[in-house]
Write a protein that binds this DNA or RNA. Structure first.
Lengths: 124, 124
DNA sequence: TGCTTATTTGACTTCTTGGTTAATTAACCG
DNA sequence: CGGTTAATTAACCAAGAAGTCAAATAAGCA
């Protein structure tokens, strides 16, 4: 099975690289060309080009064509999907803790600590 | 240069894998042993063990020892760092757009579209 | 037309990742 | 003690990621 990565996967992967996050940070200040984006980094142009492709694949940036330049543009809505995942999980986790189920922790982590799982609803 | 990944890197990397996100989702319902975590997946135990190590490295889970079991526990605070990064960036991006700097978009993406950058403050 | 600038593609290398099987460590149970 | 269960480590492999250099493409400019 090759190439089955979800959009969420791609988003997290894209953000996992510090160079890419720096590029994104730069783009937050306004559109920029590939050369401009490459300037601060000790990396060749093709290297940057690859990073941009990753950012493009997950929808974080788009590229238009203007003469021989290909200005990069940040898509502000793209972060929402990740933000939603995080928010949803923070909600769920807190809920769980509010139920005080966790004060047993450390006493016995044996099987059975968890509620009776039936459906395995991995809700992603 | 080996092993220079930041905690934020590790966090995004950990969340980039669907199996690991599923494990995390499962743990949100309560602590669980490695075998319990492995059950829903078509993967060998050592495979799961590796995933757990990744989750542990970034602080998303901790493991205690209870007899021959090593129950995994979700650290609810760990998500905060990522959440903060996301929130901060959403804020910045929106700010930028509120300034109406972007309605020029498409007219000319030429160098100079961005404000005078001096310090390259990559603020991460 | 031919030169220059901007960017991408291709081919290649190296390191990492995700997964496997087989063997090992740990701790319980009879 | 000896056997069973839980989990990890070790050794390995295939695929992917990150980076390089060299060549190709695209579009302005003289």
């Amino acid at each position: 099975m090759t190439a089955a990565a979800s959009r969420l996967d791609d988003m997290f992967i894209a953000l996992a690289d510090p160079t890419r996050r720096a590029i994104v940070a730069r783009l937050a200040r306004g559109d920029a060309t590939v050369n401009e984006l490459a300037a601060p980094f000790d990396m060749t142009l093709p290297g940057i080009s690859k990073h941009l492709k990753v950012l493009e694949r997950c929808g974080l940036i788009t590229r238009t064509r203007s003469a021989q330049f290909r200005p990069c543009h940040l898509e502000r809505a793209a972060l929402d999907e990740v933000a939603d995942w995080i928010a949803e999980n923070q909600r769920i986790w807190s809920q769980r803790f509010d139920k005080l189920d966790q004060h047993l922790r450390g006493l016995q982590g044996m099987p059975g600590t968890a509620p009776p799982q039936h459906g395995e609803d991995i809700h992603e």
